[in-house]
Design a protein around this nucleic acid. Sequence first.
DNA 1: CCTCGCTACTTCCCAGCGGGAAGTAGGTAC
DNA 2: GTACCTACTTCCCGCTGGGAAGTAGCGAGG
Lengths: 145, 145
Amino acid sequence: MATTTAAQRRARAKTEYDAFLAACPSRQLLDRISDKWVALILCALGSGGPGAGDSDGPRAMRYSQLSRALAGVSQKMLTQTLRSLERDGLLTRTVTPTVPVTVTYELTELGLSLHQMVRGVKAWAEAHMDDVLAHRATVEVAGSS
Amino acid sequence: MATTTAAQRRARAKTEYDAFLAACPSRQLLDRISDKWVALILCALGSGGPGAGDSDGPRAMRYSQLSRALAGVSQKMLTQTLRSLERDGLLTRTVTPTVPVTVTYELTELGLSLHQMVRGVKAWAEAHMDDVLAHRATVEVAGSS
DNA sequence: CCTCGCTACTTCCCAGCGGGAAGTAGGTAC
DNA sequence: GTACCTACTTCCCGCTGGGAAGTAGCGAGG
């Protein structure tokens, strides 16, 4: 059928590309890492939250601390993201059977090494914010004329 | 007061951006960067696609080239993401009125600087893929017992 | 002539993901 | 007994992103 050739080609090309990309390790992890909450959690656990600047140090944080540090995160997404990061060995989840159950999260060595990368991105975002905002304004003015 | 140090940091933080604050524009920028398609597009434009290794060089790529390089991206998301990146001044969109209209995308200096960061993350993903997979397997085994 | 095809989108529809908020467990303080 | 604490879990629903078809302008072919 000549009419379904395009669809078939597309479907087969996708499978081939998926296989190709499955062989490329960066793709799977990149999709996981490229999540806003993942980046924020790594930054928080690596630098100790909003008030601690960018100085590093392996900080253990409690669930409620993280919830406060990452303003805007829903409890569901926080739990979900933390679990997937734990599953991938980027952080450890420690339950302390104190009076109210206390759960602390801490970056592993692996997570800490990724934190170095993510911190670079976060630093870039904060450093080049002005450039981006300036360019947005330029585009807006140009578009309105 | 021991809080003097904190006050000094706070004063400096006034002039800078803090991505942890939900209201801060740099937070929105980080959210935008932390998108899988953004990361992939930056990688493709910075290194010339899947087959070109990690050697850098400002590669201008056409829409269809990008679409092929980022297998799995929908046309809608590709256009949408490219437009937002153009809006933020990370890449330039050039329309060449050839016989079939040709559109090329190229990283700006700003986009190139971000690419350096993203490439670091990509390199990390490639380097530590095995660790992550190994840990996932460990968790699975531990969970099933 | 009409139609196909090529480019780079744009539009429509729908599933699925993420946010908001309420519910859960197990203890302690009042 | 009731309220409350932490760290979730569950439900509902709106928005986002994917799939695929439609669009525009022009050259080639029947």
